[in-house]
Design a protein around this nucleic acid. Structure first.
Lengths: 154, 154
DNA sequence: CAATACGTTCAATTTGAATTGAACGATGAA
DNA sequence: TTCATCGTTCAATTCAAATTGAACGTATTG
């Protein structure tokens, strides 16, 4: 069991998202949909991964919020279908950029509140925050570049 | 309690690393050392954060492995001291680049094993892997650029 | 109007990681 | 050598997040 390379891949995707702080099942769902290449219903997903309907629902919605999955209401069935976007990783990085930007703001705000007795600490923390902001800029720039590359290679 | 902006910042740093899948204490340690700006011993750290010696030890070593902290053996004392590197975030990104590269390899390997009956899935997964590889390239480029910027502004 | 199929939510549970306290080994001091 | 100090390791515990099963609401079908 589990020697099937496809099973292995799905499992692996689970570990991957787990490393990123996301639920293991989120990665497995993405892996499964990546393999299938076509929309799949919640029922199919929960069946294929031997996972509860509740978990499939929650994780799919979470992934859809992040832009990694799209809802694809199949005509003729009232069941919601999901499928992986063409380039999931791209959207993952875009999400990271957003998180970094929010983070930069939060840290800057925190530093602003430091008393003057800690002026040096404030400077260090501000520099730290600046890095997150610049990183966010760069990530965004890069995501755009990658999108162009994809478009060109079509 | 906890209205002290510095306490708040340290706490915040904990949440931050938690979001990244790292232990909360790792972030608090980094926050504390960022504030202090000078080497601090394990004893001081565990004292300041009201955290066990064991936890301080483990987390510091973990952060040092990632290149975010440096050991700074203070002369005269045999106690190990740690301090935050000048630009911790930079090293965090460098680490991410490495992880992405490893990830790309793992995914490619997995795809290689797909049977010919899943040729299309293989193509999709390979494209997915390629993205991680490219991401790693960009992250490396970025950290280098950032390092140059830092060097220039000195 | 039932009756069915679906997605969501929520409390309860499971699972896995973080954290601790205690024991240990090593290193330097006396 | 003996004593004290430090860092690490490991089993036990605590804690938080993931996952589930069941109940619910809604829409669709016949």
């Amino acid at each position: 069991m589990n020697r099937d390379p496809i099973e292995q891949f799905i499992e692996q995707m689970g570990f991957m998202t787990q490393d990123d702080g996301l639920p293991r099942i989120a990665g497995q769902v993405l892996g499964y949909l990546l393999i299938e290449g076509e929309p799949r219903t919640l029922a199919e997903i929960s069946e294929a991964l031997s996972v509860s309907k509740a978990s499939a629902s929650t994780n799919c919605r979470q992934l859809a919020d992040k832009g990694i999955l799209t809802r694809a209401n199949t005509r003729g069935s009232r069941a919601d279908s999901y499928m992986a976007v063409t380039n999931p990783a791209e959207d993952m990085l875009a999400g990271m950029a957003a998180r970094y930007r929010a983070r930069a703001r939060a840290i800057e705000d925190a530093a602003t509140g430091f008393p003057d007795s800690h002026a040096e600490a404030r400077a260090r923390v501000t520099a730290f925050a600046r890095f997150f902001r610049t990183s966010a800029d760069f990530l965004e720039e890069w995501t755009e570049r990658a999108q162009r590359q994809m478009a060109d290679s079509e």
